[in-house]
Amino acid sequence: MRVYIGCGGYSNEDWAAPGLLYEGVRKDDYLATYAAHFDAVELNSPFYAIPGLKAFEGMARKSGGHTRFAVKLNKVFTHDRAPTDADFDRMLQSPEPLREAGLMGPYLAQFPYSFHRTAANRKYLLGLAERFAGHELAVEFRHTEWDKPEVREGMAEHGLLWVSPDYPPAGGLPEPQLHATGDVGYLRLHGRNAGSWWEGQSAAERHDYRYSRAELDEWAQKIALVAEDLSELYIFFENTTKGHALKNIPTLREALNAHGVPVATPDPAQRSGEDRLL
C-alpha cells in the first residue's frame, strides 16, 4: 500500500508565522516549498472557482512532480447541486495537466451536513457517479444517516470511494472508522474541537485542534489492519489552523512505521535539488 499524506490546502497564510513552513517564503513559492515536504495535497480552491488549464499546469510545474493532487469538486456539485454540462466539462477537463504529469489523485465531493440520505439525494449521487465514471471520486458525508454498510456496498458497486472522516464527538456525525469501498482509501482528519464544530464562526476556528500521539497511534493501528487490502491510501489533515497539521504529519508517519506500515519522509534538500534539474 502506497500512503500519501498531506494537508487540506497549501496556501495557508498563517503558516508564515515564525517557526512554521512558510516563514520568509514568498507566496509564489508556497507550493514548491510545500511539495518539498509533503507528497499529497487536497486542493480547496476549485470548490469556490474551478481553475483553468493554465492554473493546473502551473501547479504541476511548481510541485516539481512530487505531490499528488486531490481536487475538491466545486460547490455547484455538492452544495447547490445544480451543475450544468459546462460545469461538468470544466471540472473534468481542467485538471488534465495533472493527469499528464501523473499527479492526479481522486476528486473529492464534500457534501454538507444538510445532505440527508433521501431518495432524491441518492438519485443525485448516482447521477454524479455516472458523470465521473472513469475517474476516482471520493465522497464525504457529514450526516450520520449515510454511515451504514449498505451505503458503502452501493458506493462500491458504482465505483465511488468512501471518505473515512475523523470528526469531533459532536453528535450526528459519522463514526471515526476506516472503511474502503475499493482498493483506494481516503481519510480526512478534521480534528476533535467539539466546542467549536457547530458554534465556530469559521473553518479555521472549527479546525483549531492538534492531535495527540495517542490519537494518531489509534489511527495508525486502524490503517495497519487494512494495509493488505488497499493499493493506495490518501490521508489529509484538515486541522491546518496555526500549523497543527504540520506538526501532526511527522507524528503520524512515525506511528505508521512503528505499526509496520512503511511511510517515507520526503527529503526537502533532495527535492529542491531535483527541481533545479527540471
Score class of each variant (00 low, 15 high):
residue 2 R to E: 13
residue 9 G to T: 05
residue 9 G to R: 03
residue 9 G to C: 01
residue 10 Y to F: 14
residue 11 S to G: 11
residue 13 E to H: 14
residue 13 E to R: 12
residue 16 A to C: 15
residue 21 L to N: 08
residue 24 G to W: 02
residue 26 R to E: 15
residue 29 D to V: 05
residue 30 Y to G: 12
residue 30 Y to Q: 12
residue 33 T to E: 15
residue 34 Y to H: 00
residue 44 N to D: 11
residue 44 N to R: 06
residue 49 A to R: 12
residue 49 A to G: 10
residue 50 I to Y: 02
residue 50 I to G: 06
residue 51 P to Y: 02
residue 52 G to L: 06
residue 54 K to V: 01
residue 57 E to P: 00
residue 58 G to I: 02
residue 59 M to Q: 07
residue 64 G to E: 04
residue 65 G to Y: 08
residue 65 G to C: 09
residue 69 F to T: 03
residue 69 F to V: 06
residue 72 K to L: 09
residue 73 L to W: 08
residue 80 D to H: 01
residue 80 D to E: 09
residue 81 R to H: 11
residue 84 T to F: 01
residue 84 T to G: 00
residue 85 D to W: 10
residue 86 A to F: 03
residue 89 D to K: 12
residue 89 D to C: 05
residue 90 R to E: 08
residue 91 M to R: 03
residue 92 L to A: 07
residue 93 Q to A: 13
residue 97 P to W: 05
residue 97 P to L: 08
residue 98 L to T: 02
residue 99 R to C: 00
residue 99 R to I: 03
residue 101 A to G: 03
residue 101 A to C: 07
residue 108 L to S: 09
residue 114 S to K: 13
residue 117 R to D: 13
residue 119 A to F: 11
residue 120 A to F: 10
residue 124 Y to F: 10
residue 127 G to L: 10
residue 139 V to S: 04
residue 141 F to P: 11
residue 145 E to F: 01
residue 145 E to N: 01
residue 148 K to S: 15
residue 150 E to D: 15
residue 152 R to V: 06
residue 153 E to T: 08
residue 153 E to P: 07
residue 154 G to R: 06
residue 156 A to I: 01
residue 157 E to Q: 11
residue 158 H to C: 13
residue 160 L to K: 00
residue 160 L to D: 07
residue 161 L to Q: 09
residue 162 W to E: 11
residue 162 W to Q: 11
residue 163 V to D: 06
residue 163 V to Q: 01
residue 164 S to D: 00
residue 164 S to V: 03
residue 165 P to V: 03
residue 171 G to N: 07
residue 171 G to D: 07
residue 173 L to G: 01
residue 173 L to S: 06
residue 176 P to H: 00
residue 180 A to Y: 12
residue 181 T to S: 04
residue 186 Y to C: 04
residue 188 R to T: 02
residue 188 R to W: 03
residue 190 H to C: 03
residue 191 G to L: 11
residue 192 R to Y: 12
residue 192 R to M: 11
residue 193 N to Q: 04
residue 193 N to P: 00
residue 194 A to V: 02
residue 195 G to Y: 00
residue 196 S to Q: 15
residue 198 W to D: 12
residue 198 W to C: 11
residue 199 E to D: 14
residue 201 Q to K: 15
residue 203 A to D: 14
residue 207 H to S: 14
residue 208 D to P: 03
residue 208 D to C: 07
residue 212 S to H: 07
residue 212 S to D: 10
residue 212 S to Q: 08
residue 216 L to D: 08
residue 217 D to S: 15
residue 218 E to N: 11
residue 220 A to T: 05
residue 220 A to F: 04
residue 223 I to D: 01
residue 226 V to C: 09
residue 228 E to M: 02
residue 229 D to Q: 13
residue 229 D to K: 13
residue 230 L to R: 06
residue 238 E to I: 01
residue 239 N to E: 08
residue 240 T to H: 07
residue 240 T to V: 13
residue 242 K to I: 01
residue 242 K to C: 13
residue 245 A to N: 06
residue 247 K to L: 15
residue 250 P to W: 05
residue 251 T to R: 14
residue 253 R to Y: 01
residue 254 E to D: 15
residue 256 L to I: 10
residue 259 H to S: 07
residue 260 G to Y: 04
residue 266 P to H: 08
residue 266 P to F: 02
residue 268 P to G: 06
residue 269 A to P: 04
residue 273 G to N: 12
residue 276 R to D: 12
